[in-house]
Design a protein around this nucleic acid. Structure first.
Lengths: 329, 329
DNA sequence: GCAATAGACGGCAGTATTGCCGCATATTGA
DNA sequence: TCAATATGCGGCAATACTGCCGTCTATTGC
């Protein structure tokens, strides 16, 4: 059994689970079409015959199939699949919750939280400093919370410190506030050469993961931020966004203002009709590449220190963050 | 050959067309992955062998394949497929171009333009009046331009009149201005019973069409707006939108304000986590159903008159439109 | 110049889907 | 109640994809 098929089967089961009465291939196909998933009735019956065998569904005369108890349980177990899209949802909730005003340079912004051992802090600071200095971070501010200090809803325990870095979706929030709807396309690893973006080497779509892509790549030690900082050649975290083509110019201007406000992170803004970094775009859309907010932490992890990262973590007043030069003495 | 496969083949060819040198399965697969389309290298080679036979591509030693002249021509011919997404793009451009301020109740809004024969106008007026009166239109205003009168960039020729109705994406524009990013899911035919929405019977995804769905359904005479107006049972044009779940409450409030401003058209706003009218939603999103702006014209067409409709047509100052009671005497 | 490596190719075989069809059973309107 | 329709079912056969694998060649590092 193919994983792709398994997923499709779950889609079918989900339709059944949302109905109180038995359904046949035709109705299920109709429901799936509404969800933007096309499958022929025949295919659905084909799957249903499989799930019948597995005891997940059962026929109810000629009126169609319905889920068995086992089937319901299966759906819940396979619920991880359902959590897919949660990252996107969490991101959207944060974006919508922000109230940062570019004009005043204050308000709440979305941040990532990272936790590390207090004793590692000096070394981590040094590493982060280099990353910030080289401009591989998102924005130029951060907040370090020592035990006892509260950071949003998080209170570091004894022996640990928490670092809040601006999350890349903060850019989305500001853009939205300025009337530019920005959608996340995917997060991934961006190869840089001579400090300039070359191409994405790994990507994970936001709506196909339960973790922030960068979190995953950091854990997998697939980044080489330190090297990028030192030599200009390396692999950093970044994400790809899209905006409507007519908004491109405005976005370009906003990028400058963001930079001034301490939220610089937009590496590239594409041109209408042109693929950006080889990434093809739908007509009428332009692409943007944004640095990953967790890059400093990626470097820390690369340095051998243990970090726990939580992207898209929460909202924090921008004023609580300080310029890196002040904090990373 | 399956149409779906044909489309995939075109995707592959498009990648080739965007490269100046020959590419093999691996590189093409990589490029497609960036576009969110997963296909195995093997499959790509499988397709390439087909296009080789068709003379669309040719091998260049072991370095890969490249398009032949015939292949380029094919891509251009099949360009209609490429126009897919143009509706979505046109819609976005209009949305982004709007500057209607809900607070002041003025500014430009996106409108549909319809053209009909001047001699049909009296009868058309009567039909439209009924639709507006029954509340099956989008908003309560419209503009009728007689020959000589200019409507935006359109000037009706002799013997024809042009009707501008508010386009349903005007709602998106206002929402965006208020910080709620709204995305179009699909347009379609909505079955109503007792004047209440029941379910979508036909849908066309905005990013899978080159025409506005409602335009198509009107042409196909698949609507029964008149009947819906008269008896409460019928099929009208409507479209399905999505917003982030945290924005649902705000959207509900905005719906009321829109109504007051003469832009009422939001029929339903869903609840987080719940499918709306059987349409499943991604986690963290809620659905909305908006009436089609062309419903009055659909009724006119149903009445046997000839109309030409152009949805997502252009921007017009809202003040130029008048309340239906004034115009449809 | 030479070996190592990456990437390209296509045959073979096994899944995954889908179309076509004949038949069975709800539902609905007269 | 009865015929017309709509919907459901699964067999059979043709496609559509894909994984596995052995082979070949352009590129790269030494």
């Amino acid at each position: 059994m193919d994983e792709r098929s398994r997923r499709k089967i779950l889609d079918v089961l989900r339709v059944l689970s949302e109905s109180d009465k038995p359904l046949g291939g035709t109705r299920i196909a109709h429901a799936l079409a509404l969800a933007g998933k096309d499958m022929s009735q025949r295919t659905i019956r084909y799957y249903l015959s499989i799930t019948d065998d597995e005891g997940l569904t059962q026929q109810v005369g000629r009126r169609g199939r319905q889920l068995t108890l086992l089937g319901r349980r299966e759906l819940e177990t396979a619920y991880v699949m359902d959590k897919v899209g949660f990252v996107a949802a969490r991101a959207e909730a944060l974006i919508f919750g922000m109230d940062f005003k570019l004009r005043q340079g204050k308000g709440t912004v979305a941040v990532n939280l990272s936790v590390l051992r207090a004793k590692d802090l000096p070394r981590a600071k040094e590493v982060m400093r280099q990353v910030f200095q080289a401009g591989y971070s998102l924005g130029d501010r951060l907040l370090i919370g020592e035990p006892g200090q509260r950071v949003g809803s998080y209170v570091p325990g004894p022996g640990e410190v928490v670092v809040a870095t601006v999350c890349s979706i903060a850019i989305n929030g500001v853009m939205l506030d300025e009337g530019v709807p920005m959608t996340n396309r995917f997060g991934g690893l961006l190869q840089v050469s001579e400090h300039k973006p070359l191409r994405f080497t790994q990507i994970i779509n936001y709506d196909a993961t339960t973790l922030d892509p960068l979190e995953i790549f950091i854990k997998g030690k697939m980044t080489t931020v330190k090297q990028a900082v030192a030599t200009g050649e390396g692999v950093i975290g970044a994400s790809f966004r899209e905006i409507p083509a007519p908004a491109a110019e405005k976005a370009r201007r906003l990028a400058v203002r963001l930079e001034r406000a301490g939220l610089g992170g937009i590496i590239l803004v594409g041109r209408p009709g042109q693929p950006l970094l080889e990434v093809p775009l739908a007509p009428g859309r332009v692409g943007m590449v944004v640095r990953g907010g967790l890059n400093p932490m990626a470097a820390v992890e690369e340095d051998g220190l243990v970090t726990i990262n939580r992207a898209f973590s929460q909202l924090l007043p921008f004023e609580q963050l300080s310029h890196w030069e002040e904090v990373l003495a």
